[in-house]
Amino acid sequence: MNALAARRRHPAAIALLLLLGLVLTGVAYSTFAPKQADASPAAASQVEEGKKLFLANCSTCHGLQAQGTNVGPSLAGVGAASVDFQVGTGRMPLAKPDVQAPKAKVRFRQPEISALAAYVASLAPGPPIPDAQYTKGDGDVAKGGELFRVNCAMCHNFAGSGGALTRGKYAPSLRNVQGKHIYEAMVTGPQSMPVFNDANISPQSKNDIISYLHAIDKEENVGGMNLGNLGPVSEGLFAWVFGLGLMVAFAVWLGRKAA
């Protein structure tokens, strides 16, 4: 410990600390894995159960009949897909009002989510939970890439790392998101996101997009660390901090008189 304390002012200490921070962030990030879930068909008893859950957890903001209040929108016609996406990614129930509901820890088990979805779907027709055959991600990766670049990359970035919108809103990262949730987001247009209904991007094309996203999730880091896939900003920062740092460290060693 003493040796450590003595070296805490060493120039390398900052670099070490930075490195440690980066590693910790990476570990924290990688543990943030998505939960697997399965969809089940709606039934009358499910609607009943869903209503109970709704009244207990959602009605404060969305109203007792899901008619909406001044803090939460009406849920008539949002469809099961919307509920499955919002609750299934932990965005709802919302912890605190903010510019945008962030992805968070999922509060309900999948049967509960399905029940909630069935209840909301029973209120008015809306987009249903997508057919599993279109969310498997077994489509045409290259075509999905083209569709992704035209329709999605402008907000979510070329690698699905996310991007900024106006006034603190943002397009979230799409890395390691379930195919079902990607599909549901497209058909329901959550929050700032516009709607990409099945007439705009066909279910098959949506599957292609999901396939592309899954392919880049699985893609090994071709050239080494990807620096968050954020483009030239992180590369420039790396060059300044680590590139220049290493060069200067060597130069200082070179210029210093040997012991």
């Binding site: 083209e146 035209v150 329709n151 516009p194 709607v195 990409f196 209904n197 007439a199 705009n200 094309s205």
Partner: peptide, 21 residues
């Protein structure tokens, strides 16, 4: 027409909140 598929778009396909390239 849609980009990149180049298929024509019917008005009733464009729901509120939609965006087409």
């Amino acid at each position: 027409v849609r980009d990149p598929e180049r298929t024509p778009i019917r008005a009733d396909q464009v729901t509120i909140g939609s965006v087409f390239h």
